[in-house]
Nucleic acid binder design. Structure first.
Length: 269
DNA sequence: CTTCAGTCCGTGCGACATTA
DNA sequence: TAATGTCGCACGGACTGAAG
């Protein structure tokens, strides 16, 4: 668990290897999840799985204070697999934010504060208390999102993700290099087609599409945070040609890189 | 889980357009 | 006129499904 106040400056997107639940305790700002953005309000609950890139940005005048809990899927995997269903979402179309106005958000905030108190005091058995409240929160998420109860699929997704985790981390660090599915399948000691199947199961897209999305995210960061020319950003993001960069960017973001920079430089300057 | 073959689509090259 | 942005097209790699 951790308390965190996001910077008012725009930080790069990041992912965690664990599942994440956050609550805004005070302040305001913007929470970005891939192409989605939510205005931060006190009492909001945020849900993130290990696949989705995200970042929070505080309002300079009213910094947002967050309480986060991170946990491994394995704690529910063998006993209460159903509690993992809310985290097995596909980023497109998923609402990461549960607004403070929703009744269950209040209950989850209270549970998180009790967990934080237990975490700080570390009285005997505190980890059982934390786990109990975490189970309560995950059950509330299950009711709120009401996901498809396909436990077999859930199991496959988690299994695929565990297998792919080293490759996903490898891609985060090496997206700027020319990479093929053969490169990463040899890391896993699997065939390229098996690697493709695992990508489809774990992140809902093929290897090439996933790599492109990582590169477009990197390009978006550079467009906002630097004044580098688009051609330079294209190279630094790992695209081998400008044409490929333009098409991938427009396909995922819905606008040209230059338009994206003009639009967001006005907001974040 | 692998291999293989067929299909599809993204990439890269080069040319052209636009802008400062 | 140079830098930057856009587009068309051929090809190679990604993806898929079948067979084992």
């Amino acid at each position: 668990m951790m308390m965190h106040v996001p910077d008012y400056r725009l930080e790069p997107f990041h992912r965690h290897s664990m599942l994440e639940i956050g609550c805004c305790l005070e302040g305001e700002g913007v929470f970005h999840f891939g192409h989605k953005s939510y205005p931060i309000k006190p009492g909001d609950i945020y849900v993130v799985n290990p696949v989705e890139p995200h970042r929070a940005q505080s309002d300079p005048d009213q910094p947002a204070q967050f309480l986060f809990v991170f946990f491994e899927p394995s704690i529910w995997l063998h006993t209460d697999k159903e509690l993992l269903l809310p985290f097995l979402y596909r980023p497109e179309g998923f609402e990461n934010r549960i607004p403070a106005s929703v009744a269950c958000a209040t209950g989850m905030k209270e549970a998180l504060l009790i967990m934080w108190n237990e975490y700080c005091r570390r009285d005997p058995g505190f980890h059982y208390m934390i786990k109990g409240h975490l189970m309560n929160i995950c059950a509330s998420l299950l009711r709120y999102y009401n996901p498809s109860p396909d436990l077999l699929e859930a199991s496959n997704v988690l299994s695929a993700y565990r297998t792919l985790r080293p490759v996903i981390q490898f891609l985060e660090q090496n997206y700027h290099d020319p990479l093929t599915v053969n490169d990463v399948s040899s890391v896993l000691h699997l065939s390229p087609s098996r690697t493709q199947v695992l990508f489809r199961e774990a992140v809902g897209m093929g290897f090439a599409q996933y790599l492109r999305s990582v590169r477009v995210h990197a390009a978006k960061d550079l467009l906002i945070r630097t004044s580098l020319p688009v051609t330079e950003i294209c190279q630094q993001s790992g695209f081998q040609s400008q044409a490929a960069f333009y098409r991938a960017f427009e396909d995922q973001v819905g606008m040209k890189p230059s338009d994206y920079r003009n639009l967001l430089s006005g907001i974040f300057s």
